[in-house]
């Protein structure tokens, strides 16, 4: 008989030691995904390490250079409503506010969401658009991985066995940049069929900088520097948008599932991109 235990450490060191002590241990964050999988019989962890009591994982830290660090145990609700994002960093609060529904946003955490890397999840694309860095801790120390490199494959990340997400560092966005997250879902609160996360900076009538990431359309968020470049110097006219959108759609590798067919997802990507640009027009005028 396996020892089935719940461990509730108060420090990160103790959490890592507990993960190490019992091979097959799983971290328990909000439980919104893990417990649902346990209920469905999809995973049967022999030991759980609850991260709820580790205070250092919960806060945010404002950095001198305008960056913000968010702890892994930040609830979606806190990221959506209580984090002082500036400029294009707001892509993250837009994404967080569209995850599931208010009750699930009280439970689910940043670390749990990105460690699971559901292809329909909202944070991954937003973090790639924000050019964020994932902060990882393990028994042998800490390491940092760019969000782009962190998401590796379907439900798979750069985390090694025994490692934990400690948090995320969101760098300062360009002054005056606009962040936006456009999500297409069957109903409010469902996982994304497809999504577009972006940071755009305008200079007069043309785009000076852009970073676009597509969610829900492959094993990892899709970011192509080439697609970003196609928008730079343009006025986000429909021609430029459809060119960039098509390039992204061609590179996407979406699934066929209950939410939508792969073809539909590919078709919708350019339109979501155009919609995202229309949605930020008022913010641009205000800027």
């Amino acid at each position: 008989m396996m020892t089935q235990t719940m461990i509730a450490p108060e420090t990160l060191e103790d959490a890592l030691a507990a993960m190490h002590a019992e091979p097959g241990s799983m971290a328990l964050a909000g439980g919104a995904t893990l417990v649902a999988m346990m209920n469905a019989g999809l995973v049967e962890p022999n030991s759980l390490v609850a991260l709820r009591h580790v205070d250092t994982l919960r806060g945010t830290r404002q950095l001198d250079d305008g960056g913000i660090e968010l702890g892994a145990m930040r609830r979606h609700r806190e990221t959506a409503l209580e984090t002082p994002f500036k400029d294009g960093q707001t892509v993250l609060s837009y994404a967080a506010s569209q995850i599931a529904n208010p009750t699930v946003r009280n439970m689910g955490t940043l670390g749990g969401s990105i460690a699971f890397n559901d292809p329909g999840a909202d944070y991954p694309a937003a973090l790639v658009a924000a050019n964020a860095t994932i902060l990882i801790v393990g028994a042998t120390g800490t390491r940092e991985v760019s969000a782009e490199a962190f998401f590796v494959d379907w439900y798979t990340t750069a985390l090694e066995a025994g490692e934990l997400v400690a948090g995320v560092r969101v760098p300062a966005a360009l002054v005056g940049s606009i962040g936006h997250y456009e999500k297409l879902a069957r109903i409010a609160g469902d996982f994304a069929v497809a999504s577009v996360a972006l940071q755009v900076t305008w200079s007069g009538d043309s785009i000076a900088a852009a970073r676009i990431a597509i969610g829900g359309s492959g094993p990892t968020p899709l970011h192509l520097a080439e697609a970003d470049d196609m928008l730079i110097g343009t006025g986000a006219d429909s021609d430029a948008l459809s060119k960039a959108g098509l390039l992204l759609a061609q590179a996407a590798d979406p699934v066929d599932d209950v939410r939508a067919s792969a073809d539909y997802r590919r078709k919708v990507i350019p339109r979501l991109l155009a919609k995202a640009m229309r949605e930020i027009a008022p913010a641009r005028e205000a800027a």
Partner: peptide
């Protein structure tokens, strides 16, 4: 579990 991903 999502059969879409299983297929991939």
């Amino acid at each position: 579990f999502g059969l879409g991903v299983m297929k991939k």
